[in-house]
Design a protein around this nucleic acid. Sequence first.
DNA 1: TCTCCTGTGTAATGTATTTTTCAGATTCTG
DNA 2: CAGAATCTGAAAAATACATTACACAGGAGA
Lengths: 292, 292
Amino acid sequence: MANSQTLIADRITAAMGSMTSSEKRAARMLLARYPAIGLESVTAFAEQAEVSAPTVLRFITKLGFGGYPDFRRALRDEIDESRKFPLTRPRSENLDAGSDFGNELLEVVRATLAELDTGLVEQVIELFSDERRTVNILGGDLTTTVAGHLLYHLRKMRRSVFELPEMVQERSDRLIDLGKKDIVVLFDVRRYQEDVVTTARIAAQRGCTIVLFTDQWMSEASEVATHVFRAKIETSSPWDSLLGLTAIVEAIARELDRRLWSVVRPRLEAVERYKLNLLAQKEADPSSERHR
Amino acid sequence: MANSQTLIADRITAAMGSMTSSEKRAARMLLARYPAIGLESVTAFAEQAEVSAPTVLRFITKLGFGGYPDFRRALRDEIDESRKFPLTRPRSENLDAGSDFGNELLEVVRATLAELDTGLVEQVIELFSDERRTVNILGGDLTTTVAGHLLYHLRKMRRSVFELPEMVQERSDRLIDLGKKDIVVLFDVRRYQEDVVTTARIAAQRGCTIVLFTDQWMSEASEVATHVFRAKIETSSPWDSLLGLTAIVEAIARELDRRLWSVVRPRLEAVERYKLNLLAQKEADPSSERHR
DNA sequence: TCTCCTGTGTAATGTATTTTTCAGATTCTG
DNA sequence: CAGAATCTGAAAAATACATTACACAGGAGA
């Protein structure tokens, strides 16, 4: 069907004139329960419209479809289209609001957190709490910054936290040394990167625990991941949002801190002391005292 | 309205843990083309997910359906439901994800965006639109990741975007060359870093335009900055949140894209072509085609 | 290395669904 | 009010489909 632009619903209205009375009954039922009823069987459709199956069939033939399967395929395509809408939307139209976009960003965070599995968070906290395990973090093109955010928190709170090299050659060298005790944390969202998926597979083969942060469509890496976080990343903007992933990372960081604060606190103080020694100068800004 | 509470999509997420890797592939395909693909035949579903029909069948059984027809009926019901309510997702129940830390994170984004000055955004967009100006970006310890996020977007959309080196010695060398045409973008939040403030002062002295991203208490750098964005960063967690800053960055990126899309579009396509040449391999994953 | 076990696809089976045929019902027309 | 034209649905025929049975593959553990 070439004209995906023309909604099938519109075709019905147009063709209504040349319909017999029974066929009109079918048409009305289709419009009433559009498009779901078209996805049932001919028989079910016919029963609900209180006509016979052949009548329904003649009806959809008049609409210009080759047969019932053809008609259903068109309906499914329409559903697919409507899902894609935010992506393929003609760029020009709504000049209106930055505040509208603000709501979308809020929605990204809300939707992500709403679907966040707290049990999963618990499990991952458990993993991160074990300092005998090494943590290796890798992000993709877009997600490397969120990966960095997680890296930041973990590095402050515990030892043995590393980032996997972006360069594939270097990375291969590192992957060799991974084992069952190692945790590999990967970030991969749509426009999924082959090298990240491959890294996941290798890590899986080596028996690593794999924590994956991905989007609602899920990277292939999820096939081998032991723990998968899903975030919403889609907005009306052509650029995907990292807010959802960032929110998850921060929620994890906060929980980990609660769990480990008795260990983390002295660690941070020690770091602070060393830092001062390194800089060999005293802290000047009094307003910086408030944090921690 | 009976089972409208449990979206099938949510059930998938929940059951994801107990899925085998092939089943996960089926799950991902369902989420990617949700719900249309579920309305095709098992065989068609299986083919597109690149698994066998029985695998798809086992998958939907694990989701708790009695059989494939049962599953499809559920999908149709969902479509019917969504027709009745304008919003695609039943505006949800308990959105706080079990903890009210989620609400705090939401509040960070909300409060930040509420105070975002759209006039200021306009001005900065104007700055970034001018490709004769060089953009130099620098983040602090925590904020270097958001800085990276801005860097990512600007770099995709225009030329002459650089990051200032973290290392102070290197950085000094670069600062020497800055002039009136240059834009310096700084990120500095509490635990303000002296080196960032100093960088701001030097840049100001050299006549640069300075765009500062800071928190509600405002870095000292704001004294010399020409444009200042303020984000909320505080939560009940001891670790500050980057969600506010990230939201501002993404809002700016989106606006810049709208303004420049006629330039950006061909640029991205060109980049894509070069990338393919570099990799010298054809795209394998069809699901990655959809974005952009 | 062998054995078990889980996961997976092929192929056969039985069931549901579409499509066709055709006869009865209805409406229209002279 | 005939008689033709059109419409409609029951039932058979043809097709597509979901489901099951089974065997092979590959990894885990002894």
